[in-house]
């Protein structure tokens, strides 16, 4: 009896838009599991890791980075067509990243203040997440993404099930780990109550306030958090800065950032 032909391995593509590459590096950072990942998936397109670049279609496409140019937008539309599962990785790809701060200012003025010849620029006035442009199957939060969540999403894709990506607050993770509440015990401003879990409560574990790099939780009560932040001494400017980072493009954080921004006369 002839031996059955081995099933071809699912093809993986890793695509980068406007980003720092840190999230794709998280994949290469899966040191212990990297060989197993390479064994289970055919890494077909991953310029950061290999010069072998295979054409689509792909079974799983990981997209890093935000949409900042018209070219990005067109590329995404094509990518969606040739990807069975399309998963965004990181704050840039989910909410526009730190570069979404441009969304809160006049783009022409900003361009003039940075570039001697802004006329050579060909970019959009805003930085946005991928899901604003094409349908996305799953989103991985974080700046950068969490390695174990990245593996979970790949494992789930391989076995045809939904990944487990909890949406609750960082607080629950702190309490499971026995991490002391930095707001209640130290008076430190912390975005943990409004931020989605997934990081393993990394900052509070080192007595630092959460800075919201995983973006809004399932129930981001930013308005209820405002008096809490004020009670531990955070001014409006402090609060604007707290929300004005990697997930400022997420509406819950961006709206509060805008409201707290000092008014410039």
């Amino acid at each position: 009896m002839p031996t059955p032909k081995p099933k071809p391995k699912p093809k993986l593509a890793v695509i980068k838009l406007a980003s720092c590459d840190g999230c794709q590096l998280s994949l290469l950072d899966c040191e212990d599991e990297l060989l197993a990942v390479a064994g289970a998936l055919d890494i077909a397109y991953f310029p950061e890791a290999s010069s072998r670049l295979l054409k689509g279609p792909y079974d799983v496409t990981l997209v890093e980075g935000s949409v900042t140019t018209a070219a990005d937008r067109e590329r995404l539309a094509a990518l969606r067509r040739e990807s069975r599962l399309l998963i965004t990785i990181g704050a840039c790809a989910t909410s526009g990243g730190i570069q979404a701060l441009r969304n809160f200012q006049s783009y022409p003025e900003l361009a003039r203040s940075v570039y001697a010849h802004p006329e050579y620029l060909d970019s959009l006035a805003t930085s946005s997440g991928v899901a604003e442009h094409i349908p996305v199957d799953y989103e991985l939060r974080g700046c950068p993404v969490d390695k174990s969540q990245l593996l979970e999403v790949l494992i789930a894709a391989l076995h045809g099930r939904a990944p487990r990506l909890p949406r609750h607050s960082v607080c629950l993770e702190c309490k499971r780990r026995g991490v002391v509440c930095v707001t209640v015990a130290h008076g430190t401003p912390c975005l943990g109550p409004v931020t989605q879990t997934g990081c393993g409560a990394l900052c509070p574990r080192f007595s630092r306030g959460c800075f919201g790099c995983f973006g809004p939780s399932d129930t981001p009560r930013v308005q209820a958090l405002a008096p809490v932040l004020a009670s531990v001494g955070a001014t409006d400017t402090d609060v604007a800065r707290l929300y004005g980072t990697f997930n400022v493009g997420a509406p819950a954080f961006g709206d509060e950032h805008r409201v707290r921004l000092p008014v410039v006369e």
Binding site: P166, S169, L172, T219
Partner: peptide, 22 residues
């Protein structure tokens, strides 16, 4: 939680809260 090769699996339980949406 399942392994990458789908050969092994483990089930855990963890503290949860009625205050999270899910």
């Amino acid at each position: 939680k399942s392994s990458l090769d789908g050969e092994s699996h483990e089930r855990t339980r963890q503290h949860d809260s009625c205050f999270s949406a899910d």
